[in-house]
């Protein structure tokens, strides 16, 4: 029987939640194809993470361990998983599309001369052939992509594409098998240091009830003032997409997205933000989303309750005026 193998991700024994979303993807594919699902937990001290994964409905869980895997390195992970796959072949290998996976999974796939389809949001089984869907051109298009060669096939799964709470539990815990990864000491060429956060942040956007968020559509730094007047009229906080912070127009602590803050305000007002996935993951949990964008096809509208199609440079001042009027009347 063919195997779908999920390579889960943990740090300090704590599992990345996208691991469970990836298990859901694997369980669905396996159910469609009549395949079985196995999972790998890789790292140093991972017994409890492996036990947590083993609660899911899986045929087996492998703990791939070595003292050289205690701290993540691309060299270490790729070498360990390459030798693992030589012992335990799989047809389809799924990873969560995290920063860490982006760092080693392509290397692992190419070391086996196999391609990898990155950042998929879904799959189809078309007359027996597996086809994976991924976004292209900044989410303006979706592409159905297939593999041309022989398995194993490597696929990374975008966060939020499957619901982690749908991961099926097993009737009893899946068996856990320990695989010691024999790594030569010369295999790891990079020396990682401990991870850290930058100095304490002055603003905490996670507590804000209303957020006015600015994207590149604001065009010029001086136009930020109209956004901050709108935020003031709403009693909200100002935030931004990455390019605005990259340009130094707003401090990085106001950046929303995968490398910034994750927020869930009552209202998220997106001004001139296209809606790239790395931005959406930071604001998808907002209760209401209003997006103002001149492009009716902008992907941000897919997560918006209200899509305002138009020029923000005209609409924002008008909206601020209207809010002031409304306040004066109240």
């Amino acid at each position: 029987m063919s195997t779908v193998l999920v390579i889960t991700e943990q740090r300090d024994g704590k599992l990345n939640r996208v691991s469970f979303e990836t298990i859901v993807a694997a369980q669905k594919i396996a159910a469609d194809k009549g395949w079985m699902v196995q999972a790998v937990v890789i790292g140093g001290d991972i017994a409890s993470a492996a036990a947590e994964v083993a609660a899911k409905k899986l045929e087996k869980v492998y703990q791939v361990t070595s003292s050289k895997l205690a701290q993540y390195t691309a060299d270490g992970y790729a070498a360990a998983l390459k030798s693992f796959l030589a012992q335990k072949p799989a047809t389809l290998v799924l990873f969560p599309h995290t920063y860490q996976v982006r760092d080693f999974a392509p290397k692992l796939a190419l070391s086996l001369e196999r391609p990898l389809i990155s950042d998929v949001i879904g799959y189809k089984s078309e007359s027996g052939k597996l086809v994976f869907t991924r976004q292209m051109f900044q989410g303006k298009f979706a592409a159905d992509v297939s593999f041309t060669g022989e398995p194993p096939y490597f696929v990374t799964v975008q966060a939020g594409s499957f619901r982690g709470d749908q991961a099926e539990n097993g009737a009893s815990a899946a068996p856990i098998e320990t695989v010691n990864a024999a790594l030569e000491s010369s295999a790891v060429r990079v020396k990682p240091h401990d991870i850290y956060k930058e100095a304490k942040q002055a603003v905490d956007l996670t507590q804000a009830e209303i957020i006015v968020s600015v994207g590149r559509g604001i065009k010029e730094q001086k136009n930020l003032e109209m956004a901050s007047k709108l935020a003031e009229a709403l009693g909200g906080e100002l935030a931004a997409s990455r390019p605005i912070c990259d340009a130094g127009w707003l401090p990085i602590e106001r950046q929303i997205g995968s490398s910034g803050q994750t927020v869930s305000p009552k209202l998220y007002l997106a001004l001139g933000i296209s809606g790239a996935i790395q931005h959406l993951v930071g604001m998808k949990g907002s209760r209401s989303v209003i997006a103002i964008n001149k492009d009716p096809e902008a992907p941000i509208f897919d997560v918006a309750d209200i899509a305002v199609v138009g020029n923000l440079l005209e609409i924002v001042p008008a909206l601020t005026e209207e809010l002031k009027k409304a306040k004066a009347e109240a």
């Binding site: 391609p115 159905d144 138009g310 001042p317």
Partner: peptide, 24 residues
Amino acid sequence: NGLKIEKLYIPEKHKRTETIEGPP
């Protein structure tokens, strides 16, 4: 090429979004 793009298309919208257009 190890990958083949079978089809490229405009993604289906998932959320029911209300559109507002008009003079500012």
